[in-house]
Design a protein around this nucleic acid. Structure first.
Length: 594
RNA sequence: GGGGGUGUAGCUCAGUUGGUUAGAGCGAUCGCCUGUCACGCGAUAGGUCGAGGGUUCGAGUCCCUUCACUCCCGCCA
């Protein structure tokens, strides 16, 4: 028998009654009756109740022992009487009498209770993460994460993918996020960068002739955190395939995600085949490039109504004349909602920086009329036209916003979410996946007015190469796609551009000459000129997948040792100062702080 | 870098229009209790009200500054 235990804390059952056992674990809870003491012992597997009375020589010592002390106990398994069975735990039909015990690990007074469902300040949870991780929900989240990752690995293997590691110390790349830099000792004044993703490596793996690659890849980006974005580091299921078109990637990923989400969640999938929404449509219909398809509301453009003579809503008409657009959201059967419902949404919109929402409700007295503050500006004819365009019925309400296109998309997207929340239209019991496709290759930076890559500069532009109109770069679409679930962006991917000449051409549009491209992407551009296969891939975010499966709203709930919002590890005290010697060796001199 | 929220006992929180000695639950300590499983009962200790400044006869409460945490914007090819 092992020195510490014959059984774990979730093993003993009725059939074990009468046997002598040895268990080790943490003291989860004590219930002290003065002459009789119950102890719940907890380990990774579960909880077993122990019992001791004052006749035992160990009684008084155990009475005083701190919660969360690690002890080993030996004793005899007893059957519980019918009225004392605890159905909440799997070992609830038995208990173990304590004969001897030994303290294996003492515990100081706890900074946070382990056995509690209460929520605690993040700061203290992160500082004492090892205690926090003992708690049930997060302990289970981490187990889920492990199971999801191992399931994905085995699925990927079955699908013919090989797992490879790529370097953690690599070169800084000019595009994208801010890099984490690592000074080089052997090359004074030079730096490695931690990879933002194994982007170039995975393409090089394809050029090397490995047909299908994947990796649970750590990615490092020095950008500010969000609830669904860890500062510093996160994990992607990075995958890449040779001789594929967009549809081939979709097929693999859909299969994988459907299997994973079916296995690890009770929620239903809204679509087994994920709808494909062109980027442009997504912005029009949902006001977002990561639409939440659980939300049934759809945004409609009704700009042209506002150039009619019989519409007198001058504020919007004036704006439309100067290039703004009008878009609206129809809510079903809301004519009896109180005025406050409408006004709250308008008020909220203004808080979000919008210029506010107009609204009216379509009703029928003798004739069809628009009721509400701006109803009087619309003729019967124009209302009927709006109804036709928006599929609105009598009794429905229409919320209208007017702004320049980009701002309008932002506002209508926000309002769409807000209204759906207020009307409780979102089914929390489903996962709604979709693809967002046909991303533009380039976009114009609002401030600098310069043309930039809108996503991945290595993506393949759509259309036959000799037919692409490089004079109108903003019209070029890319084989670039995102996968979105319940409004969360899970990943983006692309069919890659494996043709060096085309790469130089595209980079020239954003102002890189051939030499610069050669310098910045030397590894890859060189490789592409030695027989590169057409290839493409994608990289779903592991943390976000687990977050959705665990039904958590914050990525730290599925991360074992996360950093706080300022990218500090409160447990390990990272980042920290280093010694003068270390700096010297790395040829670094610190500027004194002001 | 900007905006919102929070900060009161080890933990979770209450604290009225500014007014006596700042409270509760859990935890800790001590006592009582032989069938609990959020055991119960009683007592005790525990507070720079995040920090600094101001207004006031008087500030946990009002004002200013600042710090920490968090959510969002920017940023994240």
């Amino acid at each position: 028998m092992n020195k510490y235990r014959s059984h774990n804390c979730n093993e003993l059952r009725k059939k074990d009654v009468g046997s002598r056992v040895l268990l080790s674990g943490w003291i989860n809870k004590k219930r002290d009756h003065g002459n009789l003491l119950f102890i719940d012992l907890r380990d990774h597997y579960g909880i077993t109740q122990f019992i001791i009375d004052k006749d035992n020589k160990n009684f008084s010592r155990l009475e005083k022992i701190q919660l969360e002390t690690v002890i080993k106990i030996d004793g005899e398994v007893l059957e519980r009487s019918k009225d004392t069975i605890n159905k909440e735990i799997e070992t609830g039909e038995i208990e173990v009498s304590i004969e001897n015990f030994e303290i294996l690990g003492n515990c100081k007074e706890l900074p946070l209770p382990v056995f509690s469902d209460q929520e605690y300040a993040e700061e203290i949870r992160l500082k004492y993460r090892f205690l926090d991780l003992r708690r049930k929900k997060i302990h289970e989240n981490i187990i889920l994460r492990s199971n999801v990752i191992s399931f994905i690995r085995s699925e990927m293997n079955k699908l013919g993918f090989l797992e490879f590691q790529t370097p953690i110390l690599t070169a800084s790349s000019p595009e994208g996020a801010r890099d984490f830099l690592v000074p080089s000792r052997l090359s004074p004044g030079k730096f490695y960068a931690l990879p933002q993703a194994p982007q170039q490596f995975k393409q090089l793996i394809m050029v090397s002739g490995f047909d299908r690659y994947f990796q649970i890849a750590p990615c490092f980006r020095d950008e500010d955190a969000r609830a669904d974005r860890s500062p510093g580091e996160f994990y992607q299921l990075d995958l890449e395939m040779s001789f594929v078109e967009q549809e081939d990637v979709f097929e693999i990923v859909e299969k994988l995600l459907v299997n994973t989400f079916t296995k690890f969640s009770k929620k239903k999938l809204m679509f087994k085949t994920f709808p494909k929404i062109p980027y442009k449509d997504a912005l029009l219909k949902y006001g977002s490039d990561k639409p939440d398809l659980r939300n049934p509301l759809i945004i409609k453009d009704i700009t042209e109504i506002f150039s009619r003579e019989d519409v007198k809503f001058e504020i919007f008409k004036k704006l439309v004349k100067s290039g703004s657009k009008v878009r609206c959201i129809v809510t079903k059967d809301t004519k009896d909602k109180p005025r406050s419902f409408f006004d709250n949404i308008d008020k909220w919109t203004k808080e979000q920086g919008g210029s506010g929402l107009a609204y009216f409700t379509i009703e029928k007295d003798k004739d069809i009329v628009a009721k509400g503050p701006i109803g009087k500006f619309f003729s019967k004819n124009s209302i009927e036209d709006i109804m036709k365009k928006t599929e609105a019925k009598i009794g429905d309400s229409i919320f209208l916003a007017c702004a320049e296109q980009k701002e309008l998309e932002r506002i209508t997207g926000l309002v769409r979410d807000k209204i759906a929340q207020d009307l409780d239209l979102i089914d929390e019991k489903v996962f709604a996946f979709c693809w967002v496709v046909d991303y533009p290759m380039f976009e114009k930076d609002d401030k600098t007015k310069k043309i930039e890559f809108s996503h991945n500069p290595f993506s393949m532009p759509q259309g036959k190469i000799d037919k692409i109109n490089f004079d109108k770069p903003l019209e070029i679409l890319a084989f670039q796609y995102d996968i979105v679930c319940n409004g969360v962006e899970l990943s983006s991917g692309a069919i890659r551009n494996h043709i060096p000449e085309l790469m130089y051409k595209l980079f020239s549009i954003v102002g890189y000459d051939k030499k610069q491209v050669n310098d910045k992407f030397s590894g890859m551009i060189n490789a592409l000129s030695y027989g590169a296969p057409p290839h493409g891939g994608i990289a779903p975010g592991i943390d976000r997948i687990v977050m959705l499966l665990a039904e958590e709203k914050n990525i730290r709930e599925v991360t074992m040792f996360p950093m706080n919002q300022n990218a500090q590890d409160l447990m390990m005290n990272a980042p920290s100062q280093v010694s003068e010697d270390q700096l010297k060796e790395l040829n670094l001199i610190l500027k004194s702080k002001k």
